[in-house]
């Protein structure tokens, strides 16, 4: 499962080039066609459809009915009414990504360099919690962090909890996001560390760099493709998530864009166009951030 490392297109390791044999083009198309058709019909086409919905207007006097239009008012509504939710989504996702990185790196590093034959066992331990269902685990966190639960009561006893509670606050939401997307941070970092040439790291030590300098100047740069993929695979789903805010957060002060989209779709009559506009705004924001991020930390600067 060294898969994720390639997610952001980062191939740092030595890859073998194919023999330059000319393949028959009909074979290529036969291989490509089914998968691409699936992605076109069930990914590209629905996005186009969602975009047209985001431009629709309501029939005045008929709640729940809209007509085809080119109305950017939904986007204006999305940004003016729900700006705070967008801010929260990006902020919470950013914090969760940072914390996940801090937790994931030592684990990935230990797996790649220290674990020896325990490596596979550790890998299994990271993936296996998926099978308990992340909803069950998030609910478990809610009970663990609850007001009368072990964590909150201990902190309260020590007078270390200013607000008196953890659940229903942004702290719990960020903690939940960090927890749930941690494996998506660990696996790509591990994959890029594992494929890194260990001799280069040893050379750092041979050239009298101390442990920390070797890490900062050699190991960390070599793992950057994995860090890049990991941060993307953590930040993007975290920014769109609504389950953590729903189960761990409160009604008002911790709702994210995902919660708004979900309720506009399912609970508000005629909410489809606004929900579609919110979805596209979220996607545009994320893509813009990702683009800036890749430009800043992308592979050219790492070499």
């Amino acid at each position: 499962m060294s898969a994720f490392a390639h997610a952001a297109g980062g191939n740092a390791a030595v890859t073998h080039q194919d023999p330059p044999a000319r393949r028959r083009s009909w074979a290529t198309w036969l291989l490509l066609l089914p998968g691409f058709l699936w992605l076109l019909v069930f990914f590209v086409f629905p996005l186009v459809q969602l975009f047209t919905v985001s431009l629709q207007s309501k029939y005045p006097g008929y709640p729940g009915y809209y007509y085809r239009d080119v109305n950017f008012g939904n986007y204006v509504d999305a940004l003016t009414q729900f700006g705070a939710h967008f801010g929260r989504s990006l902020l919470f996702a950013g914090l969760a990504t940072l914390f996940a990185f801090l937790l994931a790196y030592p684990l990935a590093y230990a797996m790649a360099f220290k674990a020896g034959r325990w490596r596979n066992v550790m890998m299994i331990c990271i993936i296996a919690p998926f099978f308990t269902s992340f909803i069950l685990r998030t609910v478990a966190w809610r009970q663990i962090l609850a007001d009368d639960g072990p964590v909150a009561s201990t902190l309260n006893f020590l007078h270390l909890l200013p607000g008196g509670r953890i659940t229903e606050t942004w702290v719990a939401v960020v903690a939940g996001l960090t927890y749930n997307f941690l494996p998506f941070m660990v696996l790509p970092i591990y994959a890029s560390l594992e494929r890194a040439d260990h001799r280069i790291i040893e050379a750092g030590g041979d050239l009298y760099a101390n442990g920390f300098t070797t890490f900062r100047k050699v190991t960390l740069p070599m793992s950057m493709p994995g860090v890049l993929a990991g941060t993307l695979l953590t930040f993007i789903p975290a920014a769109g998530d609504y389950v953590n805010a729903d189960l761990l957060g409160s009604d008002r002060s911790t709702k994210m864009v995902g919660n708004v989209i979900e309720s506009q779709f399912f609970k508000v009559l005629g909410g489809f166009p606004l929900a579609a506009a919110l979805s596209f705004t979220l996607m545009a924001l994320i893509l813009a951030l990702v683009f800036v991020y890749i430009r800043r930390f992308g592979t050219e600067e790492l070499l």
Partner: peptide, 22 residues
């Protein structure tokens, strides 16, 4: 390659919403 990568870079809620409209 981009067509394969973008679904992973799309938030799940957007995928769900677009499929629902479809």
């Amino acid at each position: 390659n981009l067509l394969v990568f973008i679904p992973m870079a799309t938030p799940e809620i957007v995928l769900g919403a677009s499929l629902l409209t479809l």
